[in-house]
Design a protein around this nucleic acid. Structure first.
Lengths: 210, 210, 210, 210
DNA sequence: CATGAATGAGTGTTCATTCAT
DNA sequence: GATGAATGAACACTCATTCAT
């Protein structure tokens, strides 16, 4: 017990700092398959290779762990979205398609869908988090889309009225399809790319120049 | 034992037959505000003005109550959707707008959003119900939309390619906006009608003739 | 409901009087297979072809029903036992064998084993009934055996010391075997008659003259 | 993770290892007086000086606790019985008397009667346990008796036909008397030793040489 | 700091008993 | 009297959280 301090103190330090992330990663992995409510903190502990009590050293409660997980992933999500929208070089058509694909990948493969699900069904328990998610994920996502539309107008690819188009309508299909796909096997999942293309075509058909 | 086929045995039972519906109504009302998991069966009982045990006379478990509630509401939802699509007399533009409004009203005001939420976050506990919901609500909703698009083509209001357009893309925004609106105050709720109009404009702009 | 008073008032009266017995019979039949605690009063009602509430017209509680069942069967048991012992004409050997067989039949086929089982495991709930059962079933059974032994001495078939032999030792094997047989498939049931014979041989071998 | 194989990890656990036994002991003590069904798990917890939840750390259900209790006591019972039969040095008369006394002590004072009672009245809920009890307690008890009879024949104390005598008939009185004694105050308990003597006399009178 | 045994409030479910019809 | 819908006390079991080691 006390003999472990001999070898390398850095080693332990390093692991210690990684702990919260490992716990969050394990938690998300379990939440993805079992859902938030049905996943016991003990399972998270086992999944992260730590003891139950250890989780409480880093997160004051199950909800706090969830909030921390959202925070940890939100940064990535937002950055991804912004990169797609702002640093993209290609046509608006490609940009939109890439954006939809990013949303899908982040939601489905990255597991972010679990955050949205929990907030949708148990949002009442996380009032601040709901606000924060709305402001940081949704609003920023919408803003990214808006900038993308404006860029399209600026590039002469979209009609000027596209600047007024509500970004929520652009994002909704990609998100709804991702959510459906995680529960309803026959709806949304397999041909996601095809649907995204059709959605882009729809947008360009209506908002595109000529 | 076999003598029960007398005159009118329904008389006395008719009043009692309302009980299950009252319980379901009370349950949905509570689920809407507190969510499914956070609503105790005792609260449902109080809400319905009965004792806890009474619920078990009609529903064998909390999950069975949920399934019964879905069944009870599904019929209405599907009928609504079909009416919108099939019996509608006006233009496709009006038909789409009406359809979106029906979806929104059913989801938000009718409270059907709670079913979707629960299935999204706890679908694992209701495998058959997930299938049933997908087949009865989602698939039929998509079919109604498809028929609506075909009707538009037949009426010469939509390009022939509209017949191939994926109905999921038409429904997704209306559903996603409804879901968002129940949790994120600033997203989706207040100006729903405006968004639906813009969505219809988008569809017609791309799929409409001329 | 009110139209049934037309036909024969005697018919209903007669059935009314039979009700308690029918209920008791149905109860015992269920207790035999499911046990006392695991049998719901509703099952008894269904088995007896009456409504749950009707049981309470005749028996004030589940325990009262049990007590009444014991009383109803006790009379028969005791009479059977007394007949075996007192009215028997044959040898003591035959008398003992007949007696053991009566005990077994009453216990196993008649279902009396359920009374003993309940009193053994839940006797605390029925203090007066325990006393009554002890006095009416056990003690009288012992007395019947004692008289049987005395008769054997008088007939010159048993040594005089048999008059002092404790009847409990005579009865115990027959009862224990019956109890075992109702739960442990391999112990006691199939070859009961053979065991009774061996038990009689044992008794006569030790207590028999010559 | 794999470093747990250090010096003495048993030290800390040894104290905790007593918990299951303490819980079993408390449970049996309560079952003896109140019966199995009527004893709430919370009472067991209080009796063992732990919280309700602690019981579930060691036993997955009330029934599992019962099964564990049977297992824990079965070993002792069987060992006792075997010792009596095999390692005994004295005459068959003494051996039988000692054996009966062991049975009685184990059943009445050791509290094993509660296992038999529960299995008799609620055996349906424990099908495997019934089998196990039959095979481990009853059958082995019978075998011990059989060996005891064979030993008596070998020692020239019993007639050769004693080898064929059914051990169930030897055990039944001791067990039945123990069971009776736990419920019916006037039957069996006080003069148990006297009855055992008479039973031995009966057996030797019939099966004994000369 | 890490551990995991211990805690106990909370809830779904059962079922004997009551009582309006 | 009979019915069976309604009641509500009782209890097994779960799991987030705490804390002695």
């Amino acid at each position: 017990m006390d003999d472990t301090t001999k070898k390398g103190p850095k080693k332990r330090e390093r692991r210690k700092e990684a702990r919260p992330d490992e716990i969050i990663a394990a938690a998300i992995e379990l939440w993805k398959v079992r859902g938030f409510a049905a996943t016991r903190l003990e399972d998270v502990a086992i999944g992260a290779g730590v003891a139950k009590g250890t989780i409480y050293r880093y997160f004051s409660s199950k909800e706090a762990l969830f909030e921390a997980a959202v925070e940890a992933r939100i940064v990535r999500s937002v950055d991804q979205a912004n990169q797609s929208a702002d640093l993209f070089e290609g046509t608006t058509e490609e940009a939109l398609l890439t954006f939809f694909e990013k949303v899908r990948r982040e939601m489905v493969e990255g597991g972010s869908f679990i955050f949205l699900k929990v907030l949708l069904s148990e949002g009442h328990r996380f009032p601040e988090l709901v606000e924060r998610y709305e402001a940081t994920v949704l609003r920023r996502g919408f803003d990214a889309v808006r900038r993308l539309l404006l860029r399209g107008v600026a590039r002469g690819e979209l009609k000027s009225e596209a600047a007024e188009f509500d970004p929520r309508l652009v994002m909704a299909p990609a998100m709804m399809l991702s959510l459906w796909g995680t529960v309803f096997p026959g709806v949304g999942a397999p041909d996601a790319r095809q649907l995204h293309k059709q959605n882009v075509a729809l947008l360009l058909g209506s908002l595109g120049v000529e």
